[in-house]
Amino acid sequence: MRVSNINSLPSHEQFAVWLASPLGQYVLERERRFFDRAVADVFGYYAVQLELPGLPLLQANRMPTRLVAGLSDGCQLSCDPRQLPFPAASVDLLLLPHTLDFHPDPRAVLREVERVLVPEGRLVLTGFNPRSLWGAARLGKRRRGVPWQGQFLSLPRLKDWLALLDFEAEGGRICCYAPPLSSPRWQERFAFMEAAGDRWWPVGGGVYCLEMVKRVRGMRLIAPSWKRAGARVRQVAVAVPDRHSPHEE
């Protein structure tokens, strides 16, 4: 996306333009690997990515219906993430690539996500970590420009919101430990911090990546009838030895 004045765009579209910069590519390279792994083995019928239509983050998934929804130009389905045009419990997988960072009402977005996901449905999201070198840079830049005007929701706060909506963590990681320097040469000099960060500063990376599952209280998953029948057959087939040995009579 090329525009003459990036500041004239909505925040989520400004962020999409920023991802093409050297620093944006540094973030995107690591997030792509996370999304590819997180969505590869999620099965169902409907998968939805909210915002960033220029990034096919669902390409590693094999569901028959995969689409991008949001307010950005280029989305297959134009809608506010707070008001998704899907019935309740109809979507199997939802991706939020920094969607919460650049939406004015992230809690409303999460409530809508909870509404449309099926029980045991998957939520995969990424966000900027304020408790990192990136958070410090954001304060230094007075929260101006891209991506520093984003909300940078803290991980404990976000997990509290998700817990209230009955989401449970299934996996995740922290990445982008190097300071947010625009020069590729300086990025290379700080490349050692990626491996060191995972070991010595595991919560201090600039980006967090989460895999969540929607749980439904009181719901009991019922196994297919053929499995239950097989279990009964196996129980009948178990041999029970006679309590009295013939040698004891």
Score class of each variant (00 low, 15 high):
Val233Gln: 11
Val240Gln: 11
Phe167Arg: 13
Pro106Asn: 05
Met193Ser: 10
Ala229Thr: 02
Met212Tyr: 09
Gln151Glu: 09
Arg62His: 11
Val240Met: 08
Ala178Pro: 04
Leu153Tyr: 11
Gln25Pro: 00
Pro202Tyr: 09
Glu211His: 09
Ala239Asp: 05
Ser78Tyr: 13
Leu133Asn: 12
Leu52Val: 00
Ser21Pro: 01
Met1Glu: 01
Cys75His: 12
Leu117His: 08
Pro81Ile: 06
Arg234Met: 11
His12Met: 15
Leu110Val: 05
Gly230Pro: 00
Arg115Met: 05
Ser72Thr: 06
Ala137Ser: 12
Ile222Phe: 08
Ser78Met: 10
Arg142Phe: 07
Ile222Gly: 01
Cys79Tyr: 12
Gly197Gln: 04
Val27Gly: 01
Arg234Thr: 02
Ala237Asn: 06
Pro56Ser: 09
Asp41Ser: 14
Ala195Met: 10
Ala178Lys: 12
Pro246Leu: 12
Arg143Leu: 05
Asp198Gln: 14
Asn5Glu: 03
Phe102Tyr: 13
Pro85Gln: 06
Pro87Asp: 06
Leu94Cys: 14
Gly70Arg: 08
Met219His: 13
Ser183Ile: 00
Arg157Ile: 03
Ala169Glu: 08
Ala38His: 07
Gln14Gly: 04
Leu155Cys: 06
Cys209Phe: 10
Gln149Pro: 02
Arg131Cys: 11
His244Asp: 05
Glu211Lys: 13
Trp186Pro: 01
Gly150Val: 11
Ser154Trp: 07
Arg131Glu: 08
Trp161Cys: 02
Tyr45Arg: 15
Pro156Asp: 05
Arg122Phe: 05
Val91Phe: 12
Ala237Ser: 08
Ala137Lys: 15
Gly70Glu: 02
Val124Pro: 01
Ser245Cys: 08
Pro53Trp: 15
Phe152Val: 02
